[in-house]
């Protein structure tokens, strides 16, 4: 009889020597600092004016100087993005389940979804403005529209790839479609679902910022657009930095959720 694969992480890592720097852990910080240093040096050496390429020191100065509007607009963008994203999660999950439920629905809806996804969402913003006016609503809806497709596709894929043997075993026991979905389909699509959240949240930021840039009086997109029209380039870059920070934070949250909820899927790939 073969032995059980031991998956004991504690046993695997040897006790650390006292003064050892963990370069892997530090790498993200070091590389980020390195990037800013290179950027600073490039600006100094090239002598570009800050209206073209502001040095990071100048950008951070702008963040401090304009902190109040930056904070207010960051919150607004964060709010529209997460709201649109949450709607996308609920709708994407529901439509994904519906599409994965039956082959007929899958066959019928899938091409429509692909066609819909191919439309650049920025082209929809003017329509949303006609319907809802400028401001929060079109930003939320754009974030929603751009981010729900990956969720739908992933949930539907998880459902569509149930092993036929599993289905046979359960059907032979008298399982209804609903039983198979609840016991196998939905749990099995969860890794796909949580995986898609990382893609979706990043896209949601794209959607909300596009909409704010084109049609809003607040949010980071709008702030950057007006800063640009005043040649306040450091403030534009400050907006970009804030977006990057929000994006990284939300991505990390989704990655954490994914690990937390579907750890089995990651561990199983490690098992021999």
């Amino acid at each position: 009889m073969s032995t059980v694969t031991e998956n004991n992480a504690v046993a695997a890592t040897p006790p650390k020597p006292a003064f050892r720097i963990n370069w892997i852990k530090l790498a993200p910080v070091l590389y980020t600092i390195g990037l800013f240093v290179l950027w600073e040096l490039a600006v100094i050496i090239s002598g570009l004016p800050h209206t073209v390429l502001p040095a990071p020191s100048r950008v951070f100065q702008a963040i401090v100087q304009y902190w109040s509007p930056i904070w207010k607009n960051s919150l607004q963008t964060f709010y529209t993005t997460t709201l649109g994203f949450l709607i996308a999660v609920v709708a994407g999950m529901a439509i994904g389940l519906l599409i994965g439920w039956s082959r007929a629905i899958y066959a019928g809806l899938y091409p429509i979804m692909v066609g819909f996804n191919a439309i650049p969402k920025v082209a929809l913003v003017p329509i949303l403005v006609i319907w809802f006016g400028i401001g929060t609503v079109p930003a939320v809806l754009t974030a929603f529209l751009i981010s729900f497709f990956p969720i739908v596709v992933n949930v539907a894929t998880g459902l569509a790839t149930i092993e036929p043997e599993t289905e046979d075993v359960l059907r032979a026991l008298g399982a209804k479609k609903m039983d198979i979905m609840l016991k196998v389909g939905i749990p099995r699509s969860m890794p796909y679902f949580f995986g898609s959240l990382k893609v979706a949240i990043t896209l949601a930021f794209v959607g909300s910022v596009i909409s704010e840039t084109v049609a809003s009086n607040n949010g980071l997109g709008n702030m950057m657009a007006s800063a640009q029209s005043q040649f306040n380039v450091p403030l534009v870059f400050a907006g970009l930095i804030m977006l990057a920070v929000e994006g990284i934070a939300m991505y990390a949250l989704m990655a954490w959720l994914e690990r937390r909820m579907t750890g089995w899927a990651h561990r199983s790939s490690m098992a021999a």
């Binding site: 043997e165 046979d168 075993v169 059907r171 026991l173 016991k183 969860m190 579907t262 899927a265």
Partner: peptide, 19 residues
């Protein structure tokens, strides 16, 4: 005429649910 529930089945692929 429909799946009979007095059977148990096992295939080459064990299809254990990993979760």
């Amino acid at each position: 005429t429909k799946p009979v529930s007095i059977v148990g089945m096992a295939f080459q692929n064990p299809t254990m649910l990993p979760w």
